[in-house]
Design a binder for these strands. Structure first.
Lengths: 107, 107
DNA sequence: TATTATTATCGTAATATTGCGATATTACGA
DNA sequence: TCGTAATATCGCAATATTACGATAATAATA
């Protein structure tokens, strides 16, 4: 029974959880922060900066990318990543709504 | 190698990840939302509302409680929970700072 | 052409997380 | 006093997640 019963929750509840999940690992927070400070950066920069293996960084990049938070393009053999700001702001808005609604409900 | 290398990240990175982790499961999002809509509620209300077992709800409440987001007091045999708004707002502020800083950094 | 660099993916082992039944403890009502 | 209700915790099985070595494919350079 290690699988989450996503079917019992509403779409908006699942959405908040999915968003939060992207940030629930420090590697991914660190990656996002580092990328935001560069004009663009490549997987191996992150390997050097963060100190995890290339395979692991690539895995975490995949999670972030699947969430829509990255734009990437190849420059030769190097894949150069930068943030998808619009998506980032979408996430911020959704989380803020959740927080604000939740605290406003309370007496 | 299933354990996160938390020691390689800064405290503030770990903090963001820890906060996000509380919301990374839909049960906990749902619990927080439901509690916010009541004057106070008990574990069994949540069992009925969400549809997970009492043991599971109690587990999730424990995660939320350990994050400091709950106030609870016994009324007889019933433990009545409500939100710790201050802590909630702390989390919101920290997450917002992270999002705002990250998007502001970008060109 | 050979060598090096870059990266996504696969496979694996270790650990964390999820869900739940069982249970012990406490409170309450008949 | 007994029966019921409420809840945290334990133990367990199943699944997800984490980290990494190995590897294949591609690009660039000597």
């Amino acid at each position: 029974m290690g699988v989450t019963k996503r079917f019992i929750y509403t779409n908006s509840i699942n959405e908040i959880a999915n968003i939060a999940k992207v940030f629930a690992h420090p590697a991914r927070v660190s990656i996002l922060k580092y990328i935001s400070e560069q004009e663009g950066c490549i997987c191996n920069d992150l390997v050097n900066e963060i100190g995890l293996s290339q395979a692991t960084i690539s895995q975490h990049l995949s999670v972030i990318g699947n969430a829509g938070l990255l734009k990437g393009r190849f420059e030769g053999k190097k894949k150069c990543y930068c943030l998808n700001i619009e998506r980032f702001e979408e996430f911020q808005t959704l989380l803020n709504s959740f927080f604000t609604n939740t605290t406003a409900n309370c007496c």
